[in-house]
């Protein structure tokens, strides 16, 4: 039971982290005007969070649907895709998540340590523009979830919000040809391991 409780807490922590990370990516990569962002403090570091209600709601709804998959250890990757005007991906921020077997989790497992590790990931995102090329104007974004098992089975689990349906993404539409791979950060804790890297299109146009 303690293990299941931990998975639920880990899903909460990860979704809160992903929310901060998505806002920060949208700010750093200039997907939206900087005027809608406000400086806030998360994990004891300054971050930029959107104040636009519609955008915030969209991100929250997305993550609320991702949470049950993380809770059941069924989300392999959460990917923030930035697309050009023609809806072709220019950058993919890939959060590769893996959780250890439930048996290895005990009441001694420290959750506070996880938050310290997540801070380091946030810091890396906030400076990632230094290693990425500028994006073309008019970019938009989407969030993808790579599930470990059959999508049709998991589809039911992600439809947790009425009026926020999910569909199976076409691989051709979300993949890039020969992307440049930029590792940003790897974090390893007792209860979750996460690797963040960016796949960047060679010629962004």
């Amino acid at each position: 039971d303690i293990a299941l409780l931990f998975l639920s807490v880990v899903a909460d922590i990860l979704c809160e982290f992903l929310e901060v990370a998505i806002h920060l990516i949208l700010y750093v990569r200039e997907v939206y005007p900087s005027g809608i962002f406000q400086k806030r403090k998360k994990y004891n570091v300054p971050v930029q969070m959107s104040c636009h209600p519609e955008l915030n709601q969209y991100i929250q709804d997305t993550l609320q649907c991702v949470k049950p998959l993380i809770e059941k250890n069924e989300a392999e990757k959460v990917v923030v895709v930035i697309m050009d005007k023609e809806h072709h991906p220019v950058e993919r921020f890939v959060f590769e998540i893996s959780q250890p077997p439930l048996l290895s989790i005990s009441s001694e497992t420290l959750l506070s340590h996880v938050e310290q590790l997540l801070r380091a990931v946030i810091l890396k995102i906030s400076v990632c523009d230094a290693v990425l090329d500028n994006n073309p104007p008019g970019c938009t974004f989407t969030v993808l979830v790579y599930t470990r098992e059959s999508a049709t089975r998991n589809m039911e689990k992600v439809q947790v919000i009425k009026d926020f349906p999910w569909i199976v993404a076409d691989e051709q539409e979300v993949l890039m040809q020969e992307p440049r791979l930029i590792p940003l950060k790897t974090m390893t804790s007792d209860i979750v391991k996460m690797q963040l890297y960016v796949e960047e299109r060679a010629h962004k146009g």
Partner: peptide, 27 residues
């Protein structure tokens, strides 16, 4: 990519930049 993995995405798109700029101007 592991075998059997599938990719899911929200059907709806987020608000686009133009919509957000319009809201900003209205404010």
């Amino acid at each position: 990519k592991s075998a059997g993995a599938h990719i899911l995405k929200p059907l709806m798109s987020p608000p686009n930049r133009e919509e957000i700029l319009t809201t900003l101007l209205e404010l």
